[in-house]
Design a protein around this nucleic acid. Structure first.
Lengths: 153, 153
DNA sequence: ATGGGTGCAAAGGTTTTGCACTCCG
DNA sequence: CGGAGTGCAAAACCTTTGCACCCAT
């Protein structure tokens, strides 16, 4: 989805709930759009803002990130390093889902696209009675580089 | 796996790394074994310990829980309520994997057993080059009770 | 103009750490 | 016995909150 469409989506979803479109909200979304495939923490976003000489308070960053999650524009996640991380959500339903591969040696997080999970989701919904709206999958293991390092010792 | 076997496993894995078997470590494991299917936070464990008039410091509870995770005896997880939670890990490889269903309305967390994920895991490993050692799956949605409540309004 | 949004600083909650003392191996 | 493990309190972190001021609608 192009950046201009994302801004449009933000406007729509804010309006629907009578929220205001402020410079801060637009700028935080911009930062996330400029870092695809990364998983930014509130502090990361705050840093990126200062680099842009955009003066937005840290509390506002926290508030905005959570708001964008509520609007379904961002997805919140965490990889065990003690803080929440955010990235642009997979908006289109027919888009490939993406999961995370977390290296337990170097900590690197990479993305993996796949939709084998649809089957599992349907199965879970049928058997459990839950009405599933979202899922999150994390795989832990050793990335290629760390495997090589381990072998060369 | 019976409780006595888990204690045996703890002894083995501690010994292998030259760690000591202390009363505190045994007792924390006991607490976790006494709460199957729950997802205890450090504070929860600390509370359960005081109920048992077992006097263990909160810092030790934190240290012990992390140690047990390193030993592969516990699994760490979090459900977005701001603290880490722990439960006995699925030790046997041929055991059914268990996933978590998190109600986004009432917050209830229920377990779901399934091993459809083996297929996905193999696929991910083949395509990504990651050597996968573990995975974690969370489904978000509405539990049966909350669905009913929403319909009756 | 008016109520939601923001910035700042303070407070809150969870987890980690430093250090003297304890106790397992 | 010696060093890992523990308890306590303090510190470190991330995140939330109260309040006066600002600015989209």
């Amino acid at each position: 989805m192009p950046d201009t469409e994302m801004l449009e989506l933000l406007k729509q979803r804010l309006q629907r709930k009578q929220y205001k479109l402020t410079m801060q909200r637009r700028t935080v979304l911009e930062i996330l759009l400029e870092h695809p495939g990364e998983h930014l923490s509130a502090e990361d976003v705050y840093g990126a803002l200062r680099d842009k000489s955009s003066d937005i308070g840290l509390a506002t960053v926290y508030r905005t990130l959570e708001l964008l999650v509520q609007l379904g524009i961002l997805q919140r996640m965490e990889f065990g390093d003690g803080c929440n991380r955010y990235e642009i959500a997979d908006i289109e339903k027919n888009e490939h889902q993406h999961h995370h591969l977390i290296c337990i040696k170097c900590g690197k997080v990479t993305e993996f696209f796949d939709d084998l999970l649809d089957e599992l989701e349907a199965d879970v919904a049928a058997k459990s009675g839950f009405k599933i709206t979202d899922h999150q999958v994390k795989f832990y293991g050793y990335c290629k580089e760390c495997q090589d390092e381990l072998e060369n010792k």
